[in-house]
């Protein structure tokens, strides 16, 4: 079975060593997804697989046959950006921009996790409705490092996008 990436089907690589990240970047030319540490520590490679955010560097492409992958290229375009993409621009949610695709893919999934009321380590109550506080956003985004340190603006962008999407 092929893999579906941003609504297009592709054949999987022959070499089982190819990570999902290298497959996206080198085999099908979707270089929006970035390689930072290649060890699951920085989150630059975050993509959505069947709607769930994962580190694509720590996953073998061959294990994803039949899966549906969404990368930053599938979230929006220059002329039609997603609410999060727009908010990152408006709030300067980056400096160099290298971590930004991972940040935005991660935040896209995070907003769904909030919608599903999944608790986090920052949640006082596991079962109560969760308020989207700065503390919650920071905890939930801790798998995405920004070496420029744009964290304050990233949190602001996420809150703005969430507000726009709820309106």
């Amino acid at each position: 079975m092929p893999i579906t990436v941003n609504d297009t089907q592709y054949d999987l690589p022959d070499d089982p060593r190819v990570s999902l990240l290298d497959f996206l970047r080198h085999e099908i030319g979707l270089t929006g997804t970035k390689k930072g540490c290649d060890h699951g520590q920085c989150g630059a490679c975050t993509v959505l697989v069947d709607g769930m955010r994962i580190n694509s560097c720590l996953s073998l492409a061959v294990m994803h046959d039949g899966d549906t992958v969404q990368t930053i290229e599938g979230l929006g375009t220059e002329t039609d950006p997603s609410p999060l993409q727009k908010a990152f621009l408006e709030h300067d949610g980056y400096q160099c921009g290298y971590c930004t695709p991972g940040q935005i893919c991660s935040a896209t999934a995070m907003l769904n996790e909030f919608a599903n009321n999944w608790p986090s380590d920052a949640s006082d109550d596991l079962e109560a409705a969760i308020d989207m506080s700065d503390e919650e956003i920071r905890e939930r985004m801790s798998g995405n490092l920004c070496r420029c340190g744009a964290y304050v603006n990233i949190v602001a962008a996420i809150k703005a996008a969430a507000k726009e999407m709820a309106a």
Binding site: T46, I54, N55, L58, M110, D121, L126
Partner: peptide, 19 residues
């Protein structure tokens, strides 16, 4: 078993816990 939810949520990141 809230201690189990708490322990899992205290580890790794959402990306890693999803896999």
């Amino acid at each position: 078993y809230p201690v189990l939810s708490r322990a899992i949520l205290a580890g790794a990141t959402q990306q890693l816990r999803n896999k």
